[in-house]
């Protein structure tokens, strides 16, 4: 029993990272209908940047994260403006190719700036908590708390603010949103800014919990899309539930079956869910 709880806690930590990635992917998909493949690599750029500020410039970790977040915010807007906006009214295949090209470009930039060695963001959080037999390293606990706060903040933003509701409105009916007075040119900017900032948070979490290396961004974006399909395309609750389900399933598979097969098992679970609910866990039929 303790062992199961232990694996669930581990799974929630990585699941939280998946949720942060998937939230960005799902809101972008919702309003623009595009698969933003570069999201993982851009998120890892945020992780690398944080690592660099801490190790090369000696910035305190929290300050480095804050700066990386702001950079992510601006970078997101830039991506929307320069990469996706020009193909907004073109065939969907164009946006698809832009997304692939952008992924390669950002991966290349990461390699140029930060090299091919794997890096770990130093946190100096070495304590380990023991809660009723379940051990939680300090860092993992903070990651879970931070992810939870970000997810709650994002949900409140979407549900309780006018801008958040406008994002939903554009996703549900673009023309009707215009008739409500929504500026459909600025909404994608907001969405990319927030999504990328959330992605940077995920990148920092991956970089401090595990490591950042070339290819990790692609691994993460594949997981993110798996979550989207699992939870329901374009659905925010779906991204939250789907991310946690995927994270916990992987952790349980790794803990009780084999860590080599955890990805296989996770995808089997995903396929099983889709056989029962083709629209995803939270998707509308």
């Amino acid at each position: 029993m303790i062992e199961i709880l232990q694996q669930i806690v581990n799974g929630v930590a990585i699941g939280g990272v998946y949720v942060l990635i998937a939230l960005g992917l799902t809101t972008v998909f919702g309003i623009l209908g595009i698969a933003h493949f570069a999201h993982g690599s851009v998120s890892m750029f945020g992780g690398y940047l944080t690592f660099f500020m801490v190790t090369a410039w000696g910035f305190p970790l929290l300050l480095a994260i804050l700066i990386a977040l702001i950079v992510g915010f601006l970078l997101g807007m830039l991506i929307e403006l320069l990469a996706y906006r020009p193909v907004r009214n073109a065939n969907h295949i164009n946006a698809f190719i832009v997304a692939l090209g952008l992924t390669m470009m950002v991966e290349g930039l990461n390699l140029q700036f930060f090299g091919h060695e794997q890096v770990v963001i130093p946190t100096n959080l070495a304590r380990v908590f023991d809660i009723g037999g379940v051990t939680i390293p300090e860092l993992r606990l903070y990651v879970i708390i931070a992810a939870a706060l970000l997810i709650i903040a994002m949900t409140l933003f979407v549900e309780k603010t006018k801008t958040g509701q406008a994002i939903r409105a554009v996703a549900e009916n673009r023309d009707a949103a215009i008739l409500m007075g929504v500026n459909v040119k600025t909404i994608p900017l907001v969405v990319f800014a927030i999504s990328t900032a959330l992605g940077v948070c995920a990148g920092v979490m991956v970089g401090s919990l595990f490591a950042i290396a070339p290819g990790i961004g692609e691994w993460l974006v594949v997981k993110g899309f798996a979550v989207l399909i699992l939870g329901g395309l374009g659905s925010i609750p779906g991204a939250i539930v789907g991310g946690l389900v995927l994270g916990v399933t992987e952790a349980l598979a790794a803990g009780f079956i084999s860590s080599a097969y955890k990805d296989v098992i996770a995808f089997v679970v995903m396929i099983a869910v889709l056989l029962l609910r083709p629209q995803g866990l939270m998707g509308k039929a």
Partner: peptide
């Protein structure tokens, strides 16, 4: 303000 043809409500809201 226009109330469009076919109502165009936001279906999931």
């Amino acid at each position: 303000t226009m109330c469009p043809e076919g109502r165009q409500v936001f279906p999931q809201m």
